[in-house]
Amino acid sequence: MQPEEEGAYQAEFTAALLDPNAQAPSAIASGQERRFAVYRNNVIVSLVEALAAAYPAVQALVGEAFFNAAAGLFVRSHPPSSPLMIYYGEGFAEWLERFEPAANLPYLPDVARLERLVLEARNAADAEPLSQQGFAQIAERAGAEGLGGLRFAPHPATRALASAYPIVSIHARALLGGEGELRGAETALVTRPQDEASIIAAPTGTDLALGCFAQGGDLTQAAEQVAEAGGDFSLALSTLIQNGAIRG
């Protein structure tokens, strides 16, 4: 069956669900505004709740009332692109960047980006991480000359984000509380060593090393990229391995 069939009403129904000012669709018998509103409420509330579940730190930073108002606008303009609600909320960080009422919290989009990475990590494919021992064996086999040419793949659940803000500290503070001034830039490393995703503040350039590995680059290339950014490659690499961020 195609949309041009005679009784097609779902386009009008959908538009009326997403527009709080629209009248109930013409396909339903008249005098049922409040009845139609049940569906509209179900759609909007369930999507706002899904967004709140995906972005708990953003919600904690702006408060529930502000979050619900912002989320209500987002979900109407960005309904899910698929029925996989476990991934809903893509684009929220970019949307927040353009959301004027949140402009006084310039780090908010990065908090949202970090929470998005946690969501991706949680549902990413399973794989054995490379252990420290495993890395040591590979390095020994390669020898001093071969070391720079080694290639590693990130674990499927590994994500990283370099922020101009102390993003890991802000995120932890939003969810767990704490006091004192936060400053500086932080690079977040998200891994899933067991079932739960974990976030740590990683050395500068850790995201670049991961990105280089993901592109098929070797240790020498990764080291160059990290050094260019002013980072310490051996520190970044040992952080990745200690946290199970590399695929075994």
Binding site: G7, Y9, T14, Y39, N42, V43, S46, P79, P80, P83
Partner: peptide, 17 residues
């Protein structure tokens, strides 16, 4: 619908179509 997934079980009229 075309705009996306609405996360609710929405109603159908019951007809031969």
């Amino acid at each position: 619908h075309d705009v996306g997934y609405l996360n609710d079980l929405l109603p159908l009229p019951y007809s031969t179509e």
